[in-house]
């Protein structure tokens, strides 16, 4: 059994407009020390999937079903519907999370030291001085210069990149086995993005933790992940080792995402330009079609045997076309 196994996870939000199916039967697994990227446009259910694992969705707003089993020592723990107190023991200890906007994710009224020390104290029955030493150690590790002094500073006294480093230090203070990084570089500028991704990779080497890296930018994933899950409208539509996915995307949506990555190796006039962002909008999650949710935007559906009407009427299953490479599409493999 894998370190974390998510099985047929559903998250629905009853709203006044109707039932929002934000996560619709998601299944995946992650091994210890592995990095799994979850990629998809904004609104595809990446964040909600992971908040569900962390027990951070409001019980009144969200209806959650399915299973997510994590190894904790020799024990298997079912995260969905875990009692509040047990979930609290796991959060920040076994599984930690960092978020998109490092400014708004840190409390503006407390020094970064206080915030990291608090994260250590809540899971360790030790003297505050021990936690403080640990906080300085972590700040040092994530590359905050002069950590023993800077520990007294407040979040607004740091740059965006430094704040994200502080968030990482706080998340790692209890040596979690899984770090969920929800668009950790989206709010940062490009050079800082690269630094943060490099830092995460180095820390993973050192601490042997698993990482779920959420991003809407497939370009971020290349050197950073082992495996990629592509999400669309609450479903996983393709899942493959990074290399396979780049070399041979099997689902038109993935193909579109890859084509829209700005590439450094293109000639100057073209570089940085999104060559072919996928036309159209993701569907409403309230009235999802019976078939493939990507139909209205898909330029390949006419190549399906049975034609676009087959795509419209029947939902393709997530099938293994090549060993380890899954796609949810009616196209016969490798025809992209």
């Amino acid at each position: 059994m894998s370190f974390l196994e998510v099985n047929d996870l559903h998250v629905e939000f009853p709203t006044s407009d109707g039932l929002v199916k934000a996560v619709d039967g998601v299944t995946f697994a992650i091994e210890r020390g592995e990095t799994l990227a979850i990629v998809g446009e904004s609104g595809s259910g990446k964040t909600v999937t992971n908040l569900a694992l962390m027990g951070l969705l409001s019980k009144r707003a969200a209806r959650i079903s399915g299973s997510a089993v994590i190894k904790r020592g020799d024990e298997d723990v079912e995260l969905i519907d875990l009692a509040d107190e047990e979930m609290r023991q796991i959060r920040g200890k076994n599984v930690a999370m960092i978020f998109q906007d490092p400014m708004s994710s840190l409390h503006p009224y407390y020094s970064i030291g206080d915030q990291i020390i608090e994260a250590h104290q809540v899971h360790n029955d030790v003297d505050e001085r021990v936690s403080k030493a640990r906080a300085i150690e972590l700040l040092d590790m994530v590359g905050i210069p002069d950590a023993s002094e800077r520990i007294k500073a407040f979040p607004h006294q740091f740059s965006g990149g430094m704040r994200q480093r502080v968030m990482i230090a706080m998340a790692l203070v209890n040596s979690p086995e899984l770090l969920i990084a929800d668009e950790p570089t989206t709010a940062l500028d490009v050079t800082v993005q690269a630094q943060i991704l490099k830092l995460l990779r180095e820390l993973q080497e050192e601490l042997k933790m698993a990482i779920i890296l959420i991003t809407h930018d497939l370009g971020v994933v290349a050197g950073a992940a082992d495996r990629v899950n592509v999400m669309y409208a609450g479903k996983i539509v393709e899942s493959a080792p990074v290399r396979d996915l780049y070399a041979n995307p099997l689902m038109p949506y993935t193909h579109g995402l890859l084509a829209s990555i700005p590439r450094m190796d293109r000639r100057a006039g073209e570089s940085g330009k999104r060559l072919s962002a996928i036309a159209g909008q993701p569907p409403s999650l309230i009235a999802l079609p019976a078939g493939c949710a990507f139909v209205p935007r898909c330029t390949f559906s006419n190549r399906v045997s049975g034609g676009a009407s087959r795509c419209e009427s029947s939902m393709p299953a997530l099938t293994e076309h090549v060993p380890g490479h899954f796609a949810r599409c009616h196209l016969e493999g490798a025809s992209l």
Binding site: L56, R88, R91, G92, F99, S105, E118, V122, M167, M170
Partner: peptide, 8 residues
């Protein structure tokens, strides 16, 4: 959300 994610 960060405070909750810490396990407080």
């Amino acid at each position: 959300r960060t405070a909750r994610a810490k396990g407080l």
